[in-house]
Simulated assay, not measured.
Amino acid sequence: MTDPTLPPPSNPIVVIPARMASTRLPGKPLADILGVPMIVHVLRRAVEAGIGPVVVACAEPEIARAVEAAGGTAVLTRPDHPSGSDRIFEAVGLIDPEGRHDAIVNVQGDLPTVEAAAVRAAFATLSDPAVDIATLVVPITREAERADPNVVKAVLELRPGAAKGRALYFTRATAPWGEGELFHHIGLYAYRRAALERFVSLPPSMLEQRERLEQLRALSNGMRIDAAVVDAVPLGVDTPDDLERARALLSGRSSHISPSPAP
């Protein structure tokens, strides 16, 4: 359990895990979106958040080359990590072995439309000393999503009108039962550094393996996850159709990138 006297994290780093292997869209970090690799779009959004240095944790050197050509920072990690959490943990250890960064924001490398405000909201949720891990949710408005197992639901203890709440469970089922909002979970996380270290050291839990949801490992081991409520679900690019949607969404958006500050 987190020490209730801990101060809020003050020196975060944003890490974007990326790998070329993808069953449905091989090589997707380098997929072209308006003349720019997808991973660079994600990098730009993370830099815009302005919360700290941004690093791409790459499984392959070609991703690193694309990031560095755009003025960003990349670090090569082992290609065989079972999850993005393991990849970002290795990357932070390589970049910051002295432990200067006390929080890590994990922005998935296939979210080219993620808003900078959403990245800031995840990190801000760690200001509560009781919170180990922070994440994001969006109220479900489309009826079809309520029963869709591909839409992960977060079961929150959320007071009316509150902007964040404690996550009690995550599930692919329609939950919770009864009248009221359901929340679509967005897989963007902010970790206290000690929480990430503990998380990656734990074995997969039974419910994690049953639901195929990694965050249940944290809940099963008594770690606290809080979720901030945001307005929109960023498009996750997993298929060629998703890629076309991302191109359409970003076609009217101008972007530029400055080199991210040294971690």
Rank of each mutant, 00 (worst) to 15 (best):
residue 145 E to H: 09
residue 236 G to F: 13
residue 94 L to N: 07
residue 153 K to F: 02
residue 2 T to M: 15
residue 186 I to L: 15
residue 109 G to E: 03
residue 181 E to L: 14
residue 61 P to N: 04
residue 178 G to N: 11
residue 26 P to H: 04
residue 97 P to H: 08
residue 208 E to A: 15
residue 180 G to Q: 06
residue 136 L to G: 00
residue 12 P to D: 08
residue 220 S to E: 15
residue 247 R to N: 03
residue 46 A to W: 03
residue 263 P to I: 12
residue 171 T to E: 07
residue 131 V to W: 07
residue 126 L to I: 07
residue 140 I to W: 00
residue 32 D to Y: 13
residue 244 E to R: 03
residue 35 G to N: 11
residue 208 E to H: 11
residue 51 I to S: 01
residue 64 A to E: 04
residue 167 A to N: 02
residue 66 A to I: 10
residue 37 P to C: 06
residue 93 G to N: 13
residue 162 A to E: 13
residue 210 R to K: 14
residue 216 L to C: 10
residue 132 D to T: 11
residue 222 G to I: 13
residue 99 G to C: 11
residue 22 S to W: 06
residue 57 A to G: 05
residue 76 L to E: 05
residue 99 G to S: 06
residue 98 E to P: 01
residue 174 T to N: 14
residue 239 T to A: 08
residue 218 A to Q: 03
residue 123 F to L: 15
residue 156 L to C: 02
residue 102 D to G: 10
residue 107 V to P: 00
residue 37 P to I: 03
residue 229 V to M: 09
residue 89 F to T: 04
residue 144 A to N: 10
residue 14 V to R: 00
residue 227 A to D: 02
residue 262 A to T: 13
residue 43 L to C: 08
residue 36 V to A: 04
residue 222 G to W: 07
residue 250 L to D: 02
residue 162 A to F: 11
residue 107 V to I: 14
residue 136 L to E: 00
residue 30 L to I: 08
residue 84 G to H: 03
residue 20 M to D: 04
residue 209 Q to K: 15
residue 168 L to G: 12
residue 191 Y to F: 15
residue 178 G to H: 09
residue 103 A to M: 11
residue 183 F to N: 00
residue 110 D to K: 01
residue 221 N to H: 15
residue 53 P to D: 09
residue 204 P to N: 13
residue 63 I to F: 04
residue 118 A to V: 01
residue 196 L to F: 10
residue 226 D to S: 12
residue 176 P to D: 06
residue 96 D to W: 03
residue 96 D to G: 03
residue 57 A to K: 02
residue 148 D to C: 06
residue 261 P to K: 10
residue 74 A to Q: 01
residue 151 V to F: 10
residue 145 E to S: 09
residue 193 R to H: 07
residue 127 S to L: 06
residue 146 R to W: 11
residue 180 G to W: 02
residue 103 A to S: 14
residue 226 D to P: 02
residue 28 K to D: 02
residue 108 Q to D: 15
residue 42 V to C: 06
residue 236 G to T: 14
residue 114 V to H: 04
residue 79 P to F: 06
residue 54 V to H: 08
residue 141 T to N: 09
residue 160 P to M: 08
residue 111 L to K: 05
residue 155 V to R: 00
residue 223 M to S: 04
residue 72 G to K: 01
residue 226 D to E: 11
residue 17 P to V: 09
residue 44 R to N: 09
residue 238 D to P: 02
residue 4 P to T: 12
residue 165 G to K: 01
residue 170 F to R: 03
residue 19 R to A: 07
residue 1 M to L: 14
residue 154 A to R: 00
residue 2 T to C: 13
residue 63 I to S: 00
